[in-house]
Structures are given as structure tokens and as C-alpha cells.
């Protein structure tokens, strides 16, 4: 008599079983199948407030500058005592937010090993932004499970620069003289709710940082030494995005530091400062004034079984990573 225990149990008995499951396992159990998910939600079993927040390890990604190019190493796991989470190593760390990691063309949850491929973004209706000779894009991830279970990915354009200005294109005079960021910005945004990219418009609040040409040249000259002002401006950009798009207070006190350390751009427009961004306290961190950033994503794993079943908190820190720290001892926060 081969019985599939879990499938045959009546709801009230299954609920009795799941009631005894610890919150972090219950969160995993929610993924098992539709019936379990419905049951857990229906009975309100998942007490998210009970999920512990503890730190068991860090994901590190070293970056270093070589011949004026930023090179990134593979993400590494740093945990003491060591944990075996081979199944949940990210392949890359493009960006991360509150437990989710943005990889190359996918979003990854190291807690569960879940991975969702990102569809290719469509060609922008603002064709000039797709001119790769002038711009390049970074994808940014926004996710706050206390607000919504859905995440969003933004394609944010940056003005392309190079340490030698003379190799950059100059044919589009109109574009070079235009304000940056533009007063109306159309960004491509992917929402996990729909699974589709859509264009959304953003209105600039405040003055432009300058012109495309001006930013390009100042970036080139500042390349080796970005200022804290530049860095902070980048943060405001993200705050503005996050506030405007998600209504997520990413810059609250507990997370402000995380966000601050998120490297957006050395030369993001300082004037792109939404009114909402001022709600967050402006923090300065000398550590971000560096051309070499070390990305650290913190996560917690379930220690008793030494397995990464649950990711509890994710944060970043940027450290100065001198060449003598690469591959050697990692600075710990």
C-alpha cells in the first residue's frame, strides 16, 4: 500500500502538520504546490514576523580596475563556520535588493535556489537612448517583500564615457547638447507581476545635472576619482526611482546604509533629486569614495542543518578593496 502521505491528508490534518513547521520552513513549504500554498495562506500560518534575522554569510564579488576597465570576479561565499550552499550560489551579482539577486538575465533567490529568467527588454521607443555609442544600461532591482511580493527591474541609461574623449562619437550634436537627465525620462521596467517589460515615464524634479556632452567630459576627467557628491547623487536617483515606481521606502533608516553603499554610478546626475528622496537621511560613507568597489550581499542561512534554506536579510557594503586584499582576507563589516 503505497500512500502519498501529503497528497492524501485531509486539509485539517495537513494544517495540523504545517502548524508545527518553523516559519522559515513554512515559507519554503509555500512553494511546494498550489494546495499547500492555499492552505498556508488560508490558515494564516506563516507568521512572517517570526522569521529570524541573523547573519550567517556573505556573498562577495570583487571588482578591480584594470587598464581603466572595471573587471568583476565571480561571486564568492564567505561564511564562518562554512556552509554548503552549492545549489544557491548566484552566477553573478549585478544588483540585489532585500534578498533577491539580479544576475545576468535572471533574478535569483539564494534562499530557495529559485531562479526566474528575465525576458529580453524590448527596444526603447526613445531610440536615441538605445544608441549604445552614447549610452549604456544598468539593470537595477527593486524588491520589498513587506510591501509587495513582486519585484521590478529597471533599465537605467547612463552616459557613456571613456577616459579618452576623442574616441567618443560626436555626430549627434542635438543629443550631446540635450539636458541630462531629460525632463521626461522613459524607462523600461519589468514587473514580476506581469512578467513583461513596459515603458514608464518619469518626470525630472529639479534641475538637470548638465548636458550629455558635459557629463561625458566631466566623467572622463573624474574617472579615477569620483566624488562623494557623485555617489550620493546616484543614490538619490535610485531613491527617486524606487519611491516613484514602487512606493517603497528603500531609504529608511534600517536600509539607508545598504542603499547608500549600492553603487549606482559615479556620474549620475546630481540634480535628479525627487522630493521624496529628502525623506531619507543623507548619509555619507567615506568607503564609497573609491574606484574599486567590493560588493557584499549578506544573507543568512539556517545554521542547525548548515543549509541555506532561508535567506533572511540581504545588504551591501562597499569597501575599498586594495589589490593586496584580493583573494586574501576579506574585510568584514
Amino acid at each position: 500500500m503505497e500512500q502519498d502521505l501529503a497528497l492524501l491528508l485531509p486539509d485539517d490534518l495537513l494544517a495540523d502538520v504545517l502548524r508545527r513547521v518553523a516559519p522559515r520552513d513554512l515559507a519554503v513549504s509555500r512553494c511546494v504546490c498550489r494546495a499547500w500554498r492555499a492552505l498556508i495562506d488560508e490558515h494564516g500560518l506563516l507568521r512572517t514576523d517570526l522569521l529570524p534575522l541573523s547573519l550567517a554569510g556573505l556573498f562577495l564579488r570583487f571588482a578591480f580596475v584594470e587598464y581603466h576597465e572595471i573587471e568583476y570576479a565571480e561571486p564568492e561565499l564567505f561564511a564562518r563556520p562554512p556552509v554548503d550552499i552549492a545549489y544557491s550560489m548566484p552566477t553573478d551579482l549585478y544588483d540585489h535588493c532585500n534578498g533577491l539577486i539580479l544576475e545576468y538575465e535572471s533574478v535569483f533567490n539564494p534562499a530557495t535556489g529559485g531562479r526566474a529568467p528575465l525576458p529580453d527588454p524590448p527596444v526603447s521607443s526613445r531610440l536615441e537612448l538605445d544608441d549604445w555609442r552614447y549610452f549604456y544600461f544598468h539593470q537595477h532591482l527593486a524588491f520589498d517583500p513587506t510591501v509587495s511580493p513582486h519585484y521590478e527591474v529597471f533599465m537605467v541609461p547612463y552616459v557613456r564615457y571613456y577616459f579618452r574623449l576623442d574616441v567618443l562619437p560626436t555626430d549627434n550634436v542635438l543629443l550631446l547638447q540635450s539636458e541630462w537627465p531629460p525632463s521626461l525620462w522613459v524607462l523600461r521596467v519589468l514587473s514580476s507581476r506581469t512578467g513583461r517589460w513596459q515603458e514608464r515615464s518619469f518626470v525630472r524634479e529639479g534641475e538637470a545635472a548638465g548636458t550629455v556632452a558635459g557629463l561625458r567630459s566631466s566623467c572622463a576627467s573624474d574617472h579615477a576619482a569620483p566624488t562623494a557628491e557623485d555617489e550620493e547623487a546616484g543614490l538619490h536617483l535610485l531613491r527617486a526611482l524606487a519611491d516613484g515606481l514602487l512606493g517603497v521606502a528603500l531609504h529608511n533608516d534600517s536600509r539607508g546604509l545598504h542603499l547608500q553603499n549600492k553603487k549606482i554610478s559615479y556620474y549620475a546626475p546630481p540634480a535628479f533629486d525627487a522630493a521624496t528622496a529628502t525623506r531619507g537621511s543623507r548619509r555619507r560613507n567615506a568607503a564609497v569614495q573609491t574606484t574599486i568597489d567590493l560588493y557584499i550581499a549578506c544573507f543568512a542561512v539556517q545554521m542547525p542543518s548548515a543549509r541555506a534554506t532561508t535567506l533572511l536579510e540581504l545588504s551591501t557594503c562597499a569597501f575599498r578593496a586594495d589589490s593586496n586584499t584580493q583573494g586574501g582576507t576579506y574585510p568584514m563589516p
Binding site: 511546494v32 533574478v107 529559485g114 526566474a116 511580493p149 533572511l312
Partner: peptide, 17 residues
């Protein structure tokens, strides 16, 4: 079902406060 599982695994990133 697999796709649904994956989606929900992402849904709970456990950054609960």
C-alpha cells in the same frame, strides 16, 4: 507547476522585518 514553484520561491525572499 515547476514554473509556479520557481515564481513563488522568488516571491518569498525573506527579507522580512
Amino acid at each position: 507547476e515547476q514554473a509556479e514553484m520557481n515564481a513563488h520561491m522568488l516571491e518569498y525572499g525573506w527579507a522580512y522585518e
